[in-house]
Amino acid sequence: MSKIMVIEEDSAMRVLISEWLAGEGHDVRSLPRHDAASRHNLHHTHGAAADVVILDLPHPRSRSGETARALQAVHAAFPQASVIGISTQLARSLGRDSDVARTLGVNQLLPKPCTRDELLGAVAAALAA
C-alpha cells in the first residue's frame, strides 16, 4: 500500500482525488493548500512518510513566488516523495513529464481537471520511478 499526500485547495477536488486513490488501495491523507492551517499542518508532517505528493500548484507564472514556496515546503516535508503537480493553468499538450515539469521541480504535471485514469496513471508512473 502506497502512502499519498493530497494537497489541494478545492475541497470537492481534494475529496474526489482522495476517493479515487483510496479506491485503489492507497493510504491517502489530504490537506487544503496554502492557508495558514495547512502550512502549520504541513510543517508538522515534516518527515512523515509519503511515496507521492499530489500538489495543487498556484499559478505557475505568478510573480509572487507562491509556486516556488509551495514546492519548497513540499520537498522539505517529503524529501523522498515523487511530486505530481496539478493546475488549471496547464495545457493537456504539455505532457506529464515535460520540460515545464522539470523546470517547476515536479516529477509530473497534470492539467486540472484530470480524469481518474490520468491521475491513476500518473501515480502508477511516479511509484514505478
Rank of each mutant, 00 (worst) to 15 (best):
K112F: 00
Q89R: 01
G65I: 03
T103G: 05
S18I: 08
A22M: 10
V100H: 07
A22W: 02
I86Q: 00
S38M: 07
A122C: 01
L127F: 08
P79Q: 06
A73V: 06
P60H: 04
L21Y: 05
S98L: 03
A68E: 12
D51T: 09
H46E: 13
A68F: 02
A77P: 03
R63G: 15
E8W: 09
V15D: 15
S11A: 14
D99W: 10
G65W: 03
I84R: 00
A129P: 04
R61C: 12
L120Y: 05
A68T: 13
A101N: 04
R29E: 13
E19P: 01
D51Y: 06
H75N: 11
M5L: 13
R96N: 06
G25Y: 08
L104R: 04
G23H: 03
H34M: 13
P32F: 05
P58A: 15
G25K: 10
H34T: 11
G65H: 07
L104T: 02
E66I: 06
Q89W: 04
T45E: 15
S82C: 13
V15M: 12
I7Y: 05
L110C: 00
D97G: 10
Q80L: 13
S2Q: 07
H44M: 12
L90K: 00
T45W: 15
E118M: 02
H75I: 07
I84A: 01
R69K: 15
I17A: 14
L21P: 03
G95M: 09
T103Q: 14
F78R: 05
M5C: 07
A12W: 14
I7R: 03
L57I: 07
D117H: 08
G47D: 03
V123C: 01
A50E: 06
L120F: 06
L31N: 09
Q72N: 14
R33A: 15
V53D: 02
P58M: 11
H34I: 08
E24K: 15
E118C: 00
L71I: 15
A37L: 14
L42Y: 07
L21S: 04
D117Q: 11
H43P: 01
L94P: 00
L104M: 07
A101R: 06
S18Q: 04
W20D: 09
A68R: 14
S93N: 07
P32I: 06
L104V: 02
A50F: 05
Q72F: 10
Q80K: 15
T88G: 14
V123Y: 05
I54K: 04
C114H: 00
L21K: 02
V6S: 08
E8Y: 10
H43E: 12
G65P: 07
H59R: 11
H40F: 12
A70R: 04
S93E: 13
R29H: 12
T88L: 08
A36I: 14
H40Y: 12
G105S: 06
R92Q: 05
I84Q: 00
P79M: 10
R69E: 15
G23Q: 03
Q72C: 12
L120N: 06
D56A: 13
A91G: 10
S18N: 07
S18K: 03
A101G: 08
V15E: 13
A22H: 04
L55M: 10
G85Y: 01
V74R: 02
A70V: 02
A48S: 14
T115D: 00
M13F: 12
L42G: 08
L110R: 00
A73C: 06
A70K: 06
L57H: 02
S93W: 04
G121D: 11
D99S: 13
S62Y: 00
H75E: 12
M1S: 14
A128G: 09
A37C: 08
